[in-house]
Design a protein around this nucleic acid. Structure first.
Length: 285
DNA sequence: TTCATTTGACCGGT
DNA sequence: ACCGGTCAAATGAA
């Protein structure tokens, strides 16, 4: 079907965005090294845009994939029943989840994808130099969000991480419903909201970003920013945690009532809007 | 005290 | 039996 072609196109777009993000990260590193770096904020904006776009597209793709594959996905299998067989006093009695939907990316840094994750495991993988870390959505307990992801360092010297996402987010990230300042049916869905964290505490810290999801749009703010990664997530586990430095992933909790004064990025939205518009037009989100 | 991470154990799929 | 994914007690941080 032609949907297949669309998914293939979307994958390519996402891959291109990932490459763009990597390039932006490299540029950022260069700027950091060259003392002055007055344009770092701009780079952060670019990184934001990539993060937003990737998260946005991958989210849409997951949904599309689910739609196309839901005949193979038994909702009761991918849902809370994962624990249905757990013994109250035992451990490890569970049903292994079977995702037919997944998507992975490789990146030199672990930048924000717009979602909050909680680590629930780490494993040494055969023939892999670095352990693989397992994350699930922070909102699984309260909202039953089944999204998970795996992060594994696959290269050392130019560090490279493979991030694999499974499932899609059903959480609304603490959305307070009330004021949806954006109409997902208008102005296409390519609107990406970006805001700055102010001074990022660490060089590789990508500024906060959020994604307007078509099924549950929201306006995020920085009322709460939470760090999820420690630097031993992707390196060996002998590190102390005192100043998590290399990576971050954090929660953006929406606080719509604050009025949106932080959205002072007038021309930023235009940076990639043309490209994203093209993609979104194809998908008619 | 609460919440997140670490880490060894356990289980399912192959 | 092995390997990878998940659980949950222990531990650490705020």
């Amino acid at each position: 079907m032609e949907c297949r072609n669309l998914y293939g196109d979307l994958r390519k777009v996402i891959e291109e965005l990932v490459r763009g993000r990597e390039s932006a990260n490299e540029l950022k590193d260069l700027l950091m090294k060259s003392s002055g770096a007055p344009d770092l904020v701009l780079v952060e904006k670019i990184l934001n845009s990539f993060a937003n776009s990737i998260a946005r597209l991958s989210s849409g793709r997951d949904q599309s994939d689910e739609v196309s594959q839901n005949l193979r996905i038994k909702p009761e299998d991918s849902g809370d029943s994962i624990k249905s067989s757990v013994k109250k006093d035992g451990r490890g009695c569970y049903k292994r989840r079977k995702y037919s939907e997944s998507w992975s990316t490789e990146t030199p840094t672990l930048s924000d994808d717009g979602y909050a994750w909680r680590k629930y495991g780490q494993k040494d993988i055969l023939k892999a130099k670095h352990p693989r870390s397992y994350f699930r959505c922070t909102h699984k307990p309260d909202q039953g969000c089944q999204a998970t992801k795996q992060v594994q360092k696959i290269e050392d010297d130019p560090p490279k991480y493979r991030i694999t996402y499974y499932g899609h987010h059903t959480c609304s990230n603490l959305l307070k419903s009330s004021q949806l300042m954006l109409d997902s049916t208008s102005q296409e869905d390519s609107i990406l909201l970006n805001f700055e964290t102010g001074a990022s505490p660490v060089p590789t810290f990508a500024a906060t970003a959020a994604v307007i999801k078509p099924e549950s749009p929201f306006i995020p703010s920085l009322s709460s920013v939470k760090r999820e990664y420690k630097d031993d997530v992707q390196s060996e586990h002998t590190h102390h945690q005192s100043s998590s430095t290399t990576t971050s992933d954090y929660l953006v909790s929406p606080d719509i009532t604050s009025g949106g004064g932080m959205m002072g990025l007038p021309d930023y939205g235009d940076v990639f809007s043309g490209v994203v518009d093209d993609v979104l037009h194809q998908f008619e989100f």
